[in-house]
Nucleic acid binder design. Structure first.
Lengths: 149, 149
DNA sequence: ATTTATGCAAATCGTTTGCAAACCT
DNA sequence: AGGTTTGCAAACGATTTGCATAAAT
């Protein structure tokens, strides 16, 4: 069932002059299996690749537009599959206590408002908008219950 | 004119059990003077504090809710004054080529939609929302003209 | 006097890179 | 064979920290 995805990934890598090696395929599968962005350490653990290969290939995949780098509040880079490969436009709930990043979606109407705003800003500032980021910061259920023990 | 600000900063530091030293005052003044988030390196240069004091005090100020840490696409942390001290709620245009971060504002109606969404998500996910982040990614005017030479 | 802040230099730690062996095609 | 990818270990660089001195209360 995920063959379409792999074909799409292979195409993007090809466009970028890169091969779709087994390690890269492993990374893609690791990320497909996750429901939230993973840290590099989590990717290394779950993929069983060496650290250098994980970092190097995440970088290659990012360059080809397959993987997207997410930054939260802590010092760890996080990675997820590009939204246009998963057809799942979403945003993030970022916990300021533990740093965990969770996905969530918003009503289309709001997305459209944001998009409209984007083009407006683009025109007025000479800025070419490619994407937007709408995240919420706060405290996740786990950290809240841990605090009020 | 900026005395109100300094009083507010002093109050927050006091609440956090911290003093408002001259170095911290210098940092606050450096950030007030900027119209965009500054990297640590920029703060060091413009404040003339030692690197360690700059980092250490930015951290103290962040802990007291005076300074806010902003993350863009590059590896440099950026710092700005907390919005509730400047009464200037804003968002960021982040250039994916050079990493520069610029401030911009959006219509109140959109802000309100986002706030409404925030409370909705809070209820359904057990997540306690404290703030939101709405940023646009793309390419700034400078990088666009540099590319198409 | 005691506590806290400063600046220097060294350590830390996530991430990147050089290199030789293994892998494609 | 020719080029690429891999894994190890070493390097890198932004940020943090130990320690002795200086400032503040």
């Amino acid at each position: 069932m995920g063959e379409d995805l792999h074909r799409a990934v292979a195409d993007r890598l090809d466009l970028d002059g890169q091969r779709y090696t087994s390690g890269r395929r492993t990374l893609v599968e690791t990320l497909v299996g996750a429901t939230r962005p993973l840290t590099a350490a989590e990717v290394v653990t779950e993929s069983d690749l060496s650290q250098s290969s994980a970092y190097r290939n995440l970088s290659v995949l990012e360059g080809a537009g397959v993987v997207h780098r997410v930054s939260g509040t802590d010092e760890f880079a996080r990675f997820e599959l590009a939204e246009d490969l998963t057809d799942h436009h979403h945003h993030h709930l970022i916990c300021e206590s533990c740093g965990v990043v969770r996905d969530f979606t918003v009503p289309d109407a709001l997305e459209e408002s944001v998009d409209a705003l984007a083009s407006q800003v683009a025109r007025s500032a000479g800025f070419e908008v490619r994407d937007h980021r709408l995240d919420l910061f706060g405290h996740c259920a786990d950290c809240r219950s841990a605090t009020q023990v």
